[in-house]
Design a protein around this nucleic acid. Structure first.
Lengths: 222, 222
DNA sequence: CGCTCTCGTCTCACTTTCTGAGATAGTCTT
DNA sequence: AAGACTATCTCAGAAAGTGAGACGAGAGCG
């Protein structure tokens, strides 16, 4: 029942979608509790969203996220050229390292996982595509904090160990545009047991190369 | 510049997202043209959506679909149990047939593609996940039109040739719940050159078996 | 059988929010 | 430096959203 940030319909609608994302599926009363909205308002909103396919009802008549969101999600991913171009490069990186790899972009003072590929190992570290993570923790976060060319010239990659999540280590490298601005961060992450406490030593080169390949691909396309 | 169906902010917002999905990325003036909204209104809406991550700006400051939609899209797909359970079954079906396979569900008087797997062939028929198609054309459409157990007892599968799209044929079979209600349709589709004008002969059995397996999996889960 | 609880849905007077033409400010072009 | 674009902001007026409460359907119970 966390309070709604804004006051407009749109804020409420997004808040409701967020509640449904967290909780999976909710009856009207649950929706009411989860959003803090009055019954009538919650119902009206849910029905309005349903008409647009952003919300649907499951077999029991409970509200849950609608299929239109699947279509929009795909379109959103496709309309991000770096993400599309990165996929083959990231697949190669995952296959060569055997670990989960991600592509992050900066969004305000956070970072967003735009592409996520999972390690084939049984024990793996997964970051959901679309997830929003803090900028001030994790190797990818530090890479994205470097704004200009002058920063971080010392190394091609950055490593972090248990910085954001216990037991998880990662190595990241910047994808830079023509002008040296950091466009995105390529990241390899997994359990410390496999990555060790100095993951850069083993994977730094591969990650930096992947980031570089991606940067070149981008330059060639644009 | 098609007119907006509703009048509320929500209708306009969804309309705008639809415009961005179709057009990829738009400047404010283009957005204005695409949505038919006045400048100020389009701008205010776009900024509001941006604050929620449903819209973002690309490198040139133009508006496009935001990353939050990727996250919501994934959540929407995951919150649909049949879709999740179906994936492995559909993968097996695609591999055994070598053609594109889809899972459709009825949504109002249309059908929605919830899962879509592509054929490995160079020439392949693709249906985007999340796409909404008519119910009155295509084999999957006819399967979903059968409401009760009494309908369509004659055959386990339905075939269609160039019914919805020239050059494309398909075979579909119903996934039925405990009570015999049609929950979804499994479909194999591809170019006539490979599927022939009587695709059911070759693929009917496989499609029906896949649908049946899925139905059993569902029954076991629920 | 009738009572009660809960659930989803609808109504309607109230009022908050959204509206959008126009003004303003920043950015390339020429 | 004028012109032709952009994106962004303002504010009085108008329209859309609001939500307590009524309603009917259904489930559970004594």
């Amino acid at each position: 029942m966390d309070s709604v940030s804004g006051v407009g319909v749109l804020d409420k609608a997004v808040h409701m979608l967020g509640a449904l994302r967290r909780e999976g599926s909710l009856g009207l009363a649950d929706l009411q509790r989860a959003t803090g909205l009055p019954r009538a308002t919650a119902h009206r909103l849910a029905v309005a969203l349903e008409e647009h396919g952003l919300v649907r009802r499951d077999g029991n008549g409970r509200f849950c996220l609608g299929f239109e969101l699947i279509a929009l999600g795909h379109a959103a991913a496709e309309s991000f050229p770096i993400g599309e171009l990165a996929r083959p490069v990231l697949v190669a990186l995952r296959d060569s390292t055997g670990e989960s790899v991600q592509l992050f972009v900066r969004e305000g003072d956070e970072r967003r996982c735009v592409v996520s590929l999972q390690s084939p190992h049984g024990l793996r570290w997964i970051v959901p595509e679309g997830a929003r993570l803090p900028l001030d923790a994790g190797s990818a976060g530090r890479v994205l904090l470097a704004r200009s060319t002058s920063d971080w010239v010392e190394s091609d990659w950055v490593e972090s160990v248990e910085e954001r999540e216990p037991g998880v280590a990662s190595v990241s490298s910047a994808v830079r545009g023509r002008d040296g601005a950091v466009l995105a961060a390529v990241s390899v992450s997994g359990p410390i047991e496999r990555l060790t406490r100095g993951p850069g030593k083993r994977f730094g080169r591969a990650v930096a190369d992947a980031a570089d390949t991606l940067a070149k691909t981008l330059a060639a396309t644009a």
